[in-house]
């Protein structure tokens, strides 16, 4: 999507700006709220935030691209966060990633063509005793095997159809 054809409903940001009015250090919080609203951070939203918060667009873009939580592109209906923490690594997170890539045909940071899944690897979900772990939306799935991981995404895909 290019800058010129991106048209987000910016009125949704009004309550966010109101909530953080007077707080000069709320840029990250505002971006988080904006991402909750839009699912990602569209360019026009970033510019609107820059204007409203008195930050330069360059700075807003700098912050939005520094933190892994922020997304500048829409994500799939289901966001798979695959843990690649130490414990998960030791217990075979690489093979889980491979299985997911095989099953979905997309890799880290990508979204399936049907828009059902996005995969993102994360440093640690903090559920190390259940490693290897992945989180899909709000749910955590632990003690994965490649087969189990494939099974889980298959079920979600069926349910999403």
């Amino acid at each position: 999507m290019c800058d010129c054809c991106e048209k987000s409903d910016l009125s949704k940001l009004t309550p966010v700006f109101e909530a953080f009015a007077g707080d000069d250090h709320a840029l990250i919080s505002i971006l988080q709220k904006a991402q909750e609203i839009y699912g990602y951070l569209p360019t026009d939203v970033l510019y609107a935030i820059a204007e409203k918060t008195g930050n330069s667009p360059a700075k807003v873009m700098g912050v939005a691209t520094f933190y892994t939580q922020f997304r500048l592109k829409p994500v799939g209906k289901n966001l798979i966060l695959l843990c690649k923490g130490t414990a998960c690594h030791v217990n075979g997170a690489d093979s889980i990633e491979k299985a997911l890539v095989e099953e979905l045909g997309v890799g880290d940071g990508e979204t399936t063509d049907d828009g059902i899944f996005s995969i993102k690897t994360v440093a640690c979900l903090g559920c190390c005793s259940l490693s290897p772990v992945m989180m899909i939306n709000e749910d955590t799935y632990g003690s994965l095997t490649p087969a189990k991981a494939k099974e889980i995404v298959r079920k979600i895909r069926e349910a999403s159809k």
Binding site: A87, C124, C128
Partner: peptide
């Protein structure tokens, strides 16, 4: 900001 992978 418990970031060390493996610490929780």
């Amino acid at each position: 900001d418990e970031g060390d992978p493996g610490a929780f």
